[in-house]
Design a protein around this nucleic acid. Structure first.
Lengths: 269, 269
DNA sequence: CGTTTGCTTGACAGCATTCAACGTTGGTGG
DNA sequence: CCACCAACGTTGAATGCTGTCAAGCAAACG
C-alpha cells in the first residue's frame, strides 16, 4: 500500500558518492565530485529510478540539455515554499527531503519524504504556484528540470511523456495508500508500514534492506503518520521490546521483518 | 485545504438534466436525452469544469472525435475494479462516484467522491492497471476518454497537455489536503471540512451552496474521513444540536456556514 | 407488508494524546 | 578540552476522543 513500485536500480557503483550516516560530511564535496564527472541524465546512476526510465540514448541526450542546472540545498533549508512561483520540477540527486503543507491555523502535515531519484514539485502544476514546502533533511542536491521545457520535450517524445505521466500517477496512488494508512491503521501498523516502505525504497537504491538511518525526527515521522511524537517514540520502544527492531536513536535495525510485515497485514489484533 | 479550485460553471441551462434527489428516476432517460442532442465536449455544459478548460474551438473539435463513446453505470455498479486493465480515463457526465482501495486484510478506504466534470481513472496510468475501484453511487454516465489517444492528442496541443497535467496535479494537491485532514483533525473538523468542500463543488455546478443531498452512506463518509459510521452520525447530530445544520437523513441544510468554517480553521477548541 | 439496509443513540472500553519530567546527543564557546 | 545549551528522544500518569458493542428506529425495496 505504501510501497512505491520502483524498478530495481542498475547497481553500477552506486556507493561511490553517499553521505555518511554520521552526517559529518556536507553535501558539497559530493556535489563537486559529480560536477567533475560532468553528470548528465544519460550517465547518472539514478536513471533507472528517475525521470529517464525507459528512454533511448538519443532521447536521453535531449533530456541532458534540458536538465542543465543543479542546485544544492543545505540541511534545514527549503527548496521551495508554498506560494512560490512554479517554474521547475526537481529530481533528488543526493540527500533527503520532506514535503509539508500547513493549514491556516498553523497545523502542519508532512505529506512525503523524498530520496534520490524521486521528483519534487509536481504539486505546483495545478496553480502555477507551489502548494507545499520542500525542506532538505540533510545537505542535498537536486537536478532542476524547467517545467515548460519538459512539456515541450514530452510533446516530442511519447516515451518521456508517458514516463512523466506514470510518475504523476504513481504519486496519486501513493497518496491513496497513505490515506488508507491514516484512515484505518493503528499506531503500530502505521509505523511498521512506514519502516517497510522506507527500507524497500532504500534497498532499491543499493542500501541494506534491514538497517537504516532515519533522516527525520520523531516529530516529522509523527506528522507524516498522523501521530504525536510521543506515540512514535513509544511504538519504537515497543517494537524493540518485542524483538522486531533494534533502535538506537535514529539508527534502526530490523531484526524481524516478517514480524513487521505481519503487523501491517493483520486485521485488528 | 480540501477545496478544489474549480472555475465557475457557465450556467447555461445546467438544470435541464439532473437526477431527482428522490432517486426515483433512473439515469437512462437522462442519457437518452443527451444522446438526442448529440453531445460533444464542444457543446457540453460541463466543459468549463472538465478536461476541455481553456481549449480553442478547433482544439475542441479534435477532442470531440476522441471522446466518442459514453458509458452508463447503474447505481452500485463499478466503472472499473482494482486490477482491471487500464485503457481509458473517464469524465463524469452525470451522477456521482466513489473511489476506494482495499488492503489485503480487507480494510477499505474511500479515497474520493467524484461528481460531474471530474476525472476518474488517473491512478491506472502508473501500472497500466487500475489501482482502485470506482463505484457509482447513483445511476451515472461517463465520457470514455481512450488514454492512448489522449496522449497522442496532447502531444499535438500544448493547451490540452497542460490542462491534463493540471488536473493530475490538482488531484495530488487534493490528496495532500486529505492527508492533513486525516492526520491532524478531529471528527468535528473533518466532517465540517467535508461538508464545506462538497457544497463548494456543488455550488460551482449550479446547485445551492447551503442545501445538499448526500449521495453516500454514513459508512462511506466515515471511510473517507477515517471515522466510524457511528461517529459520523453522532457528529451530524451534534452539529444539528448546535444549530449549524439541519439533518434529515441524507438531506442536509447548512444553517450556519460561518460556524462550520470556524470549526475547520480553529486550533483545538 | 415484511425484510433489508441504513441511521441514531447509549454505555463502556481502549488507544492515542496531553502534560510533565528526565535523559541523551551534538554543537558552541569559554 | 570541557561545560553548557538547545534540540531531540524516552517514559510515566492521567485524560479524553473515538471505537466497539448493542439496541431500537426509520426508510427503502421487492
Amino acid at each position: 500500500m505504501l510501497n512505491n513500485t520502483i524498478p530495481v536500480l542498475d547497481q553500477s557503483n552506486t556507493d561511490a558518492c553517499r553521505s555518511s550516516s554520521k552526517g559529518s560530511t556536507n553535501g558539497s564535496s559530493c556535489a563537486m565530485k559529480y560536477e567533475a564527472f560532468k553528470v548528465a541524465c544519460s550517465s547518472c546512476n539514478l536513471r533507472e529510478l528517475c525521470l529517464p526510465v525507459g528512454l533511448s540514448q538519443p532521447q536521453l541526450s535531449h533530456l541532458d540539455s534540458l536538465v542543465a542546472t543543479r542546485k544544492t540545498v543545505k540541511r534545514g533549508d527549503a527548496l521551495f515554499h508554498t506560494g512560490d512561483a512554479f517554474r521547475s520540477v526537481y529530481a533528488v540527486r543526493t540527500g533527503f527531503f520532506k514535503t509539508r503543507i500547513s493549514s491556516e491555523d498553523g497545523r502542519d502535515q508532512v505529506t512525503g519524504f523524498q530520496m534520490a531519484g524521486e521528483l519534487l514539485g509536481l504539486d505546483g502544476i495545478s496553480t502555477d504556484r507551489h502548494a507545499c514546502d520542500a525542506i532538505a533533511l540533510e545537505d542535498s542536491q537536486v537536478c532542476v528540470i524547467p517545467y515548460a521545457q519538459l512539456e515541450d520535450l514530452s510533446r516530442e517524445f511519447s516515451d518521456l511523456q508517458h514516463q512523466f505521466h506514470k510518475i504523476m500517477s504513481r504519486e496519486i496512488v501513493r497518496d491513496h495508500g497513505v490515506m488508507l494508512l491514516l484512515g484505518s491503521m493503528r499506531a503500530e501498523e502505521r509505523l511498521a508500514a512506514f519502516l517497510l516502505n522506507l527500507t524497500q525504497r532504500l534497498h532499491a537504491r543499493g542500501f541494506s534492506a534491514s538497517a537504516l538511518v532515519l533522516r527525520m525526527t520523531r516529530e516529522e515521522i509523527g506528522s507524516y503518520l498522523g501521530l504525536k511524537l510521543e506515540t512514535v517514540s513509544r511504538t519504537f520502544s515497543k517494537f524493540q521490546d518485542e524483538g522486531l527492531l533494534e533502535v538506537k536513536q535514529r539508527d534502526i535495525r530490523i531484526t524481524d521483518e516478517a514480524g513487521l510485515r505481519a503487523l501491517v497485514n493483520s486485521v485488528r489484533c
